[in-house]
Simulated scan of single mutants.
Amino acid sequence: MEPTDIVHSECLNILRPVRDALDVLNGKWKLPIIVALTFGEKRFGEIAREVQGITDRMLSKELRDLEVNGLVKRTIHDTYPVKVTYELTPHSKTLGEVIESLRKWGMLHRQNIMQHS
């Protein structure tokens, strides 16, 4: 096996799972929705207020995608009127370190940009 083959294989071993993660978390809304739900179960309108700038149609689509990928649980409560809530699944809570790392990097990046402006 050539050294370049080893490097290529190592690169693929990093890129494949990163690509898988990005495929699930793609777009600008999924992580903000997950962050909003880290503070507990919420109704649609509460999420819409916290994730500023998202349309109802986009929020609905993103919640469906997150539900399909096992990151958000949708519960229909047997009340009148019907109450629908959303919450994180145990699997989505494994994103905690990722979100914290992104938060720290975002703060560092903002400082860097401000220093060079």
Rank of each mutant, 00 (worst) to 15 (best):
Q111W: 05
K83I: 14
Q115E: 14
L71W: 01
G70A: 11
W29I: 02
H8K: 15
V98M: 08
G40F: 03
V35Y: 08
L66F: 00
V82H: 10
S101E: 10
D78T: 12
N13R: 14
T4L: 12
Q111G: 06
T89W: 09
R57H: 00
L108D: 09
I33P: 00
L95W: 04
Y86E: 08
V82G: 05
L12I: 15
F39K: 14
V35Q: 13
L59V: 04
Y86M: 03
Y86C: 06
L12F: 09
M58N: 06
W29C: 02
K30V: 04
R43M: 10
L31S: 01
A36L: 05
E46W: 01
E87K: 14
S9F: 11
T79M: 11
E50F: 03
K42Y: 04
W105P: 02
G106F: 04
L66S: 01
D5M: 12
E10A: 12
I99P: 02
L31K: 06
G27D: 06
V82P: 05
W29A: 09
R49Y: 04
L71K: 04
D20F: 09
E67H: 01
G106C: 07
L63C: 04
H116D: 10
G106N: 07
I99T: 08
V82K: 14
G70Y: 10
L15H: 08
V72P: 01
S9R: 12
L59F: 01
E67Q: 07
Q52Y: 04
N69C: 06
I54F: 01
G96R: 07
I54C: 04
S60F: 05
V35M: 11
L22F: 11
L37Q: 02
V7L: 14
E97D: 13
N69H: 13
G45H: 06
I47K: 01
D23W: 08
S9P: 01
Q111Y: 09
R74L: 10
K30Y: 07
L59S: 03
W105F: 15
W29V: 03
P3V: 12
W105Y: 15
V35I: 15
H109F: 14
G27V: 08
K104V: 06
F44W: 02
R19K: 14
Y86V: 07
K30G: 04
E41V: 10
I34L: 15
V84M: 11
V24D: 02
R16M: 13
L102Y: 05
V84F: 08
Y80P: 02
V72R: 07
Q115L: 13
P3T: 11
K93E: 15
D78M: 13
P32D: 06
K30L: 07
